[in-house]
Structures are given as structure tokens and as C-alpha cells.
Amino acid sequence: MSVCTSRFDETLAQRLIQLTESGLPLVEDPWTWLAEQLGISVESTLDLLKRLQAEGAIRRIAAVPNHYRLGYRHNGMTVWDVCDEQMPRLGELIGAQPFVSHCYRRPRRADWPYNLFAMVHGRSREEIDSYREHLRFLLGTASRADEMLVSSRILKKTGLRLASPRSSRSWLASEGR
């Protein structure tokens, strides 16, 4: 958070997080609703949202679907042992594929040789198998080994609650990291 952010702004930002982190009500003018809740004007509310977005605290403002309920019941965590030198280029390439939702570089471990993770989703096992094949084609010989871990069950999936009652102040507003 910016050091010049006033205490008042920080309190407002925390209120905004609490009010919106589980979603806005489906009304025609959601920002008017939020402005009323915050006790500020719609214009100030939009400015606050823009500031939080510019600072990176808000990643995006979007209509987030539940892909599972839309029939995308198959997900595969594809993992790859990619040559370190080529990782910057190949990570970007894999992350840019439209069927990939998450793509991260992670460390290798003693019994875990894979350093690139890409999540793929589809409506059938065949569909995600074909995505894996496509990633294999893109990575070519730069990947020495790969696996796809399909999920057999979702045991827990909740959106992260930043403003949980357990933390007296939002982590977003904490400093010194």
C-alpha cells in the first residue's frame, strides 16, 4: 500500500474489501449500492476502485463464472520438467494458451522434478488429454518429462476471505512484506 494513503482511505479500502469480496449484489447500479454502503459518492467509489486496481490490490473486476457448473468438470494439473534456460520464453508461451487458467513456475524438489505447472480444464477427459498433447507439442524437447494429475475429487474450494474475522486487519493493508 502506498505510504501516502491516508488512514481514512485505508479504512475505506478495508470496508470495500469486506463488502465486495464475496461478490456484488446483482443490481443495475452496483457502484451506487457500494457508494451508499461506504457513505461516499459514486465518483469517489470509482476513484477508490481505480486506485486499488492501479496499486494491484484488485487484480480485475469481472463476472467470474463457476466453470464446474458450466460443465467443465475435468481439470488436469499438467506438470513439466522444463530446461531452466528456456523457461522464461516457454512459460510465457504456455501461459498464453486460451485453455490454460493458471501457469506457474515452481521449485523442483528431491522427488519432484517438475518446475512448470499449467492447469487445463475441459468438459471431457478427451478434451483435457488433447490440451496436454498440444502443450507437449509446444514444449518439444525442452521438456524432459511430464505428467498430468487429474482431480478425482474437490475436497474444499472456497474463495479466499481476506477480511476474515481472524485477522484484526486485512492482510492487504499490512506492510513490510
Binding site: L16, I17, T20, E21, S22, G23, L24, L26, P30, L49, L52, Q53, G56, A57, I58, R59, R60, I61, A62, A63, V64, P65, N66, R69, L70, G159, L160, L162, S170, W171, L172, S174, R177
Partner: peptide, 25 residues
């Protein structure tokens, strides 16, 4: 459209998505 999605449980939410990675570790 949004209301139908929500009724079907196919809308996770509409609104800001906060950056988890900034929120600690």
C-alpha cells in the same frame, strides 16, 4: 443472463478479484 447464471450456481460472483499473492504468502 447474470441472474440465470446465479440461480444455476454457475456464477461464482461479479465484482473485484483481490490479489492473493499480495495478501501475505
Amino acid at each position: 443472463c447474470l441472474q440465470r447464471l446465479e440461480l444455476a450456481g454457475a456464477l461464482s460472483r461479479v465484482g473485484p478479484v483481490f490479489d492473493h499473492s499480495r495478501a501475505g504468502a
